[in-house]
């Protein structure tokens, strides 16, 4: 494992910490898209189907369990916690799941590395992760007064995939035959979706003003 991969995973982990911190400290999930959170949970469930059948390392297994556990915990907070669930922006969070899930499922059926249930479901998770942030980005654009933790959360999510791209470049040059077109292209698409957000995030940080996305 290289430093970019480790940094990417740690940033990803930190994004969960920031999100849980925001929700718990403010007892509010205002500005957080439940749809994006549900899609991420679906992504992890589909990607880690081999959790118990394919052991790579203690690190991998632990991280997978943490990601799954945290995702379900966030869903519980947003849907089941009696104080927090009333703060959810239901009327604003209107993105349709099917617009993302259906094309990703079709694409996974068409473009994959192997025609096995595990592989197709895994590929679906890669495609879905690339676009799962869209409901959150749409909600951010509609939210006035984005709080710092929400902005930081989305920034960390984007940074994580950016660091993974550096990790793939590193692996390409250091590992023989390391080619993963599906993952690379999806990861690049995923990172590109954040570029607009990055621009406004960094601008607000440099000018020391509150983050606001133009609608």
């Amino acid at each position: 494992m290289n430093i970019f991969r480790l940094a990417g995973d740690m940033v990803h982990l930190l994004s969960f910490v920031v999100l849980v911190l925001k929700i718990n400290a403010t007892k509010s999930c205002r500005g957080i898209s439940l749809k994006t959170q549900e899609l991420y949970t679906l992504v992890f469930v589909c990607r880690y189907l081999d959790l118990f059948s394919n052991f790579i390392s203690m690190y991998n297994t632990t991280m997978k369990i943490v990601f799954l556990g945290t995702s379900f915990a966030i869903l519980y907070l947003m849907r089941g916690h009696k104080v927090i669930k009333v703060t959810y922006d239901r009327e604003q969070d209107t993105f349709r799941y099917l617009f993302l899930v259906l094309p990703c499922a079709l694409l996974a059926l068409l473009i994959h590395n192997a025609w096995t249930p595990f592989e197709v479901v895994w590929t679906f998770s890669i495609y879905l992760e690339a676009v799962a942030i869209l409901p959150q980005l749409v909600l951010l654009q509609r939210t006035q007064n984005i709080d710092n933790l929400t902005g930081n959360y989305v920034f960390l999510l984007g940074l994580y995939r950016g660091l993974y791209i550096l990790n793939w470049i590193y692996r390409y040059f250091t590992e023989p035959h390391y080619i993963q077109w599906i993952v690379w292209i999806s990861g690049i698409v995923q990172t590109i979706l954040y570029l607009d957000f990055f621009y406004y995030y960094i601008k607000s940080w440099k000018n020391n003003v509150k983050l606001a996305l133009p609608s």
Binding site: R47, D50, I56, E175, I179, Q180
Partner: peptide, 10 residues
């Protein structure tokens, strides 16, 4: 097995 099918990333 090739590294393509190992899925060693998260």
């Amino acid at each position: 097995a090739t590294s393509q099918h190992e899925h060693d990333e998260l």
